[in-house]
Amino acid sequence: MNAVIQLDDVHKIYHTGEVDVHAVRGVSLKIFPGEFVALMGASGSGKSTLMNMIGCLDRASQGFYLLDGTDVSKLNRDELADIRNLKIGFVFQGFNLLARTSAAENTELPMLYVRHHLQSHERRERALKSLEIVGLAQRADHHPNQLSGGQQQRVAIARALVNQPALLLADEPTGNLDSQTSIEIMGVFQKLNDAGITIVMVTHELDIASYTKRTVILRDGKILTDEPVKNRLIAENELQKLRAAQQAVQLA
């Protein structure tokens, strides 16, 4: 099977002022279709830089990167934009939805930049389908300020899915959410992963990482450990436990 992501001795050096910052020092990593990977590490470990490179927002200084069979390490800005548009779906910590724009229109955004033009009704249809997957079809015409944090993140996930990318990238997707909502969002990711979508997620929370299937821990720009998750949590079970506990508190 071909890897979705294949990093080969990737380096990233920032030339800032007098000192060169060597943020990523030789990372090699293969991620296969259907995997659910958590990238972990302390701040300064290079996980964000690595994430930006995987997400084609940034290019590696050295080494090469194959995304879904395409060598993206030599592409220019516009070609990278097209790759982001078609092959990658982004989910951010701060949701990054457009304000005063409905959930459906937010979801349509990536389709606006597809090279072959889509009819507006076609865009709307696909957006609604995408919102349905994350369980927000009824809120399609709500604006972000009318939605809770969890709902906003669901819209962001729907937006990430709408162009059917090869890879879903999530950068601390639960960072702004309370614990219960975090578990709900992890439930959405688990459901998507079960449906066959490859997910790479940056997090610094161990319990969130334990919902994934594989944990890669970085330190000083290098991979420290890379192992499958033992005692994997299932979001649905955890939510049931949480609700039971809440009920117990109310009964008492």
């Binding site: 927002l57 934009a81 982004f90 990054n96 955004l109």
Partner: peptide
């Protein structure tokens, strides 16, 4: 700026 960032992240080219 943030809106521009979002648009670029989801695939807007510089020309767009």
């Amino acid at each position: 700026t943030r809106e521009i960032g979002i648009r670029m992240a989801v695939g807007a080219r510089a020309r767009d």
